[in-house]
Design a protein around this nucleic acid. Structure first.
Lengths: 138, 138
DNA sequence: GATTGATGCAACAGAGAAAGTTACATTAGC
DNA sequence: GCTAATGTAACTTTCTCTGTTGCATCAATC
């Protein structure tokens, strides 16, 4: 697993759950399919559950809290506390006021981009991930 | 410096150059203002120069290859070889075909998002970064 | 109610990437 | 030629995230 593995893994996992809700999947099953560790899967699932997207129970595997067409990629993204564009830093590093203004403006622009990204993510649901036909293999 | 420092630092540097083209700025100057190392600045500048955005020369400091209103954030983003959303992995990890299709679809969706992000970045120029009035301080 | 199996969580080790640093050859300006 | 800045190549440090182990908790089954 490399960069952005959490988001990819989360979508992978949710796609599985959306495709076969009845089938009880353990974190070990998902981990094996995703080529990673059960604990890593549970960490991601923990974030999703914390955000109210999943209803996993301690004793056994849980499921989606709502239909896959009601869960957007933005929900997942925000649940994972991702911030791919904006840095989140607002600290003043320089004594030069011109420098500060420039720094603040750069941050401001990046935050705008971040918001646009979330809006774009909100336009796609888990259900669409499973149905998207843009498969360019071969 | 933390995450996304390259993009932030690049915009920071370009913003400086756009604001005062006549003033020769050394990488040491920029590094001091940005709170980082001259070599780190030169690494970022090297990428930008490689992409044709800058015309830095060995002996002394260079400048913007074109006007700041003609350089978009997408130019900078692509110059830095950033790929914030898409993972770039197309490898087949599982023997299960259903698994493969899901994996490919997830990647496909993430690449769509990545393209949307670049489009959004292309809508903003360096000149706008300096002029954006959305400064929400204090 | 005991057993089994999966979860949630914490702690630690390992890998990987990026920043930071040093060093040096190259080149423009004086 | 001298000075100063660049471009680049190592190397070290730092940090984040994955991978791993261990264990208490809780549900399902008998």
């Amino acid at each position: 697993m490399k960069r952005n593995s959490r988001l990819s893994l989360a979508l992978h996992t949710l796609g599985h759950m959306a495709g076969d809700p009845a089938r009880v999947r353990t974190s070990a099953d998902i981990a094996e399919h995703a080529g990673t560790n059960p604990v890593v899967v549970r960490r991601v699932l923990g974030k999703l559950r914390e955000a109210g997207l999943l209803t996993s129970e301690k004793g056994h595997a849980g499921g989606l809290a709502r239909g896959p067409e009601k869960i957007t990629l933005a929900d997942v993204y925000l649940a994972l506390d991702e911030s791919l564009v904006a840095t989140g830093e607002q600290e003043v590093a320089s004594a030069c006021s011109v420098e500060n203004i420039l720094q603040i403006k750069v941050e401001s622009v990046l935050e705008d981009i971040e918001r646009s990204l979330v809006e774009r993510l909100a336009a796609t649901t888990i259900a669409e991930v499973r149905e998207t036909g843009a498969v360019n293999h071969g």
